[in-house]
Computed example of a mutant assay.
Amino acid sequence: MSTFTLAAAQYDIGFFQRWEDFAEKLEQWVAQAAKNQASLAVFPEYGSMELASLFGEAVYKDLQRQLHEMQTLLPQWHALHNELAKRYNLMILAASYPVQQANGEFVNRAYLFGPQGLLGFQDKLIMTRFENEQWHISAGDQIQVIATDLGTIGINICYDSEFPHLARQQVMAGANLILVPSCTDTEAGFHRVRLGCQARALENQCYVAQAPTFGLAPWSEAVDINTGRASIYTPVDYGFPDNGILRQGSESDAQWVFAELDLSEIARIRAEGQVFNHRDWDKQFSPTAPVQNGQ
């Protein structure tokens, strides 16, 4: 399927007394995406941290305790996403989840579910200062691509989108769409990720979709302030928006942002574009080392 509708979530962090309240919220979001004919629904980085509210203040105010307690919910969280993807017949990039490894460390993992079950996952590869210095979440070590009925998909979790060689390796492995779940607490942080996403779309001549957390959750020690706008980015060339932004959310509301993507347009622009960024990538390595002049 070369043409399909993608839904990028501008997702608010909720507060829940019961698991059932979270399940109802998630189903409402997925149902709305399906109602708008979305084949792929993209949730944000760390949107799952709203589940920490289920454990009470002593846990959700403690950065380490919340990570450990959330492991008890991971099996039913998996089951819920499997069920919703099957029931509504669409793929879901679930909000990234802190997952404990056999060595006791935690990674920030984004799972992709389809109607047939779990399709794959990507761990965040480069950690922010907050993750490294305060939250103690560890970096993953494998760059993945995921084969789907919509084509091959790569995932760059938030900060990863700011490093060009990660997405490039996914593109060279066949990905024409990069999904970027994000969680940023300032406008500067949002724009860093946005600029990274747009650069990845420019240099690889591909689609990039950003799904951020949104709004305030003052109860949460981890995701209290959330700033961003869901957006879908494109190559900057014939047949695409002049600014490379196909769709973007408002600054005022949690919402889905929908866009119709045509992956056949990626092959066209790489073959017939005004520029050939994708093809010319290797040329940047051809010049000799810098020569210092003017001395």
Rank of each mutant, 00 (worst) to 15 (best):
M1T: 11
T3H: 05
A8F: 01
Q10T: 06
R18Q: 11
E20D: 15
D21N: 08
K25D: 07
K25T: 05
W29K: 01
W29D: 04
A31C: 13
A41N: 04
P44Y: 07
S48G: 07
M49C: 01
E50F: 05
L51A: 01
F55C: 09
F55S: 04
V59M: 05
E69M: 04
M70E: 01
T72F: 13
L74S: 00
L74G: 00
P75I: 01
N82F: 12
E83H: 13
E83L: 12
E83S: 14
E83W: 12
A85Y: 06
K86N: 12
R87I: 09
Y88I: 10
N89R: 14
M91Y: 15
I92L: 11
I92D: 03
L93P: 13
S96L: 13
Y97I: 06
V99W: 07
Q101V: 04
A102I: 11
E105I: 13
F106N: 10
F106K: 03
N108F: 07
R109M: 14
R109D: 08
Y111S: 12
F113W: 13
P115F: 12
P115A: 06
Q116V: 11
G120Q: 08
K124N: 09
L125N: 11
I126V: 14
I126N: 13
M127I: 07
N132M: 12
Q134M: 12
W135C: 11
I137N: 05
S138G: 08
A139Q: 14
Q142W: 12
I143R: 08
I143K: 13
V145Y: 05
I146G: 13
I146N: 11
I146M: 15
G151M: 00
G151I: 05
I153W: 03
I155F: 12
I157A: 05
C158I: 03
S161P: 06
E162A: 03
F163K: 02
R168Q: 15
M172C: 10
M172R: 15
A173S: 14
G174L: 09
A175D: 08
L177I: 02
I178M: 15
L179G: 00
S182M: 15
T184S: 14
D185Y: 14
T186N: 04
E187S: 15
G189Y: 12
R192M: 10
V193A: 06
R194S: 11
R194W: 08
G196P: 05
C197K: 10
A199I: 09
R200A: 11
R200F: 04
L202A: 05
E203M: 09
C206K: 00
Y207T: 03
V208T: 04
V208Y: 00
A209R: 04
A211G: 10
A211D: 06
P212A: 05
P212E: 03
F214G: 00
G215S: 05
G215P: 01
G215K: 02
W219N: 06
E221C: 05
I225N: 15
N226L: 12
T227W: 14
G228M: 03
S231N: 07
V236W: 02
D237C: 10
F240M: 02
D242E: 10
Q248V: 00
W256T: 01
V257G: 11
L263P: 06
I266S: 00
I266H: 09
R268H: 08
I269D: 01
G273H: 03
F276A: 13
F285Y: 13
A289W: 06
P290R: 00
Q292P: 02
Q292K: 14
N293T: 09
N293G: 10
Q295M: 12
